[in-house]
Simulated scan of single mutants.
Amino acid sequence: MKKRILVFVFLILQIVFTSGCWNRREPSELGLVAAVGLDKDGENKVKLTVQIIKPGEIKAPVSKGGPGSPKAVWVVSSTGNTSFEAVRDFVNQTGRRLFWAHNKVIIIGEELAADGVVRYLDFFIRDPELRRRSFVLVARGKAEEILQAEHPLEKIPATAIEGSTKAGKNSSTSAVVNLKQFVDMLTSDSRDPVASRIELTPEEAPKKRGIETTEGGGKEEAVNRFKVDGAAVFKRSKLVGWLNKTETRGMLWVTGKVDKGIVDVNCPEHNGLVSIEVIRASGKIKPVIKDGEITVNVDIKTEGNLGEQACQLDLTKPEVLHRLEEAEAAAIQEEVMAALTKAQQEFGADIFGFGEEIHRTFPREWKNLQKIGIIYILN
Rank of each mutant, 00 (worst) to 15 (best):
K3E: 08
R4A: 15
I5W: 10
F8D: 08
L13T: 10
I15W: 10
V16K: 03
S19F: 07
P27A: 05
S28D: 12
S28C: 05
L30K: 09
L30F: 08
V33M: 04
A34F: 03
A35R: 00
L38R: 02
D39W: 09
G42I: 06
N44M: 06
N44C: 05
K47I: 05
I53A: 02
P55H: 03
G56N: 14
I58H: 08
A60E: 12
V62K: 12
G66F: 08
S77W: 10
S77V: 12
S83F: 00
F84A: 13
E85V: 04
A86H: 01
F99V: 03
K104W: 04
I108N: 00
D115V: 15
D115H: 06
R119D: 13
F123E: 01
R126D: 08
E129Q: 15
R133L: 12
L137W: 04
E145A: 12
I146Q: 01
E150G: 10
I161E: 00
K169E: 14
K180H: 15
F182M: 05
D184V: 09
D189K: 11
P193S: 06
V194D: 02
V194N: 02
R197V: 05
E199S: 08
E204K: 08
P206F: 06
I211D: 08
E215C: 01
G216I: 04
G218C: 04
K219N: 09
K219Q: 13
E221I: 10
R225L: 15
K227E: 14
K227Y: 11
D229H: 12
F234Q: 03
G241C: 04
T246F: 09
E247Q: 15
M251T: 13
L252P: 00
W253H: 00
W253M: 01
G256W: 02
D259N: 14
K260H: 13
C267T: 09
E269P: 05
V278Y: 02
V278C: 03
I285P: 00
G292Q: 04
E293Q: 12
V296H: 07
V298P: 03
E303S: 14
A310E: 15
L321M: 11
A327N: 11
A330W: 11
E335V: 09
V336N: 03
M337V: 13
M337H: 09
K342P: 03
Q344R: 15
I351C: 01
I351G: 04
I351R: 01
G355H: 05
G355I: 04
E356N: 09
H359G: 08
N368V: 05
G373N: 14
I375R: 12
I377V: 12
